[in-house]
Amino acid sequence: MTKPFQSPEHPARLVVINAGVSDPSSTRMLADRIAQQSLDRLAGAGLATSLTIIDLAPLAIDIAKAIVAGFPGDKLQAAIDSLAGADAIVAATPVYKAGMSGLFKSFIDLVDNDLLIAKPVILAATAGTARHAMVADEQMRPLFAFLRAVPVPTSIFAAPEDWGAPDLGKRIDRAATELAQFVASGVGRAIVNAAWDGYQHQFAGNAAQAERSAADVNFDTDLMRLAAGGSSSGS
């Protein structure tokens, strides 16, 4: 039923979601550092990697329109497509009003439930005070759990003082190492191949493995049997 989403000879694809909106943006700066470290660690693990950055600020109006209309325009579709093809993700948001940015959440609201299944994600947040240090773990982690993605054990949070602290670099390296090991192990692909049918899916959705034709569809289900004239009473 399922197809591998990465052939062994294909370079790994790292995709960054950046919800920072200023220029320069400390969220983007953090995302860039995480991305570079991840590329280095992936290279160290023997994986050639391509990098795509999705800046949400230029997509803000498209995101708002898509939420109201119920479907994305071309630019947003391209962003969703690049996420669908991602082997690893860095998700970075500023903290506003003690939470992830509304723009970030709105973008994620437009993502199919099955788009990020078993993809490793480094969660990252920036804030004006260290009091928001748990936003990545207490707000972003449950969100990506709902999406059945796999946030790596270490999340990255940067308050103003962290930009002068060597420990930030150490944490970034730890998260990048975790991400690289996850990708190198192939366990994400293995999970998708072994368990894909068990998740909720949308026919012809955006997920790389979405069912798009009769050849992809599992007909061995209660509903499909009912559709073909079967009975739901089990007789």
Binding site: Q202, F203, F219, L223, M224, A227, A228, G229
Partner: peptide, 13 residues
């Protein structure tokens, strides 16, 4: 608009 089971039923009959 989104449900293959409904399309399947249309096809079956």
């Amino acid at each position: 608009i989104r449900t293959p089971e409904i399309a399947e039923q249309a096809a079956y009959y």
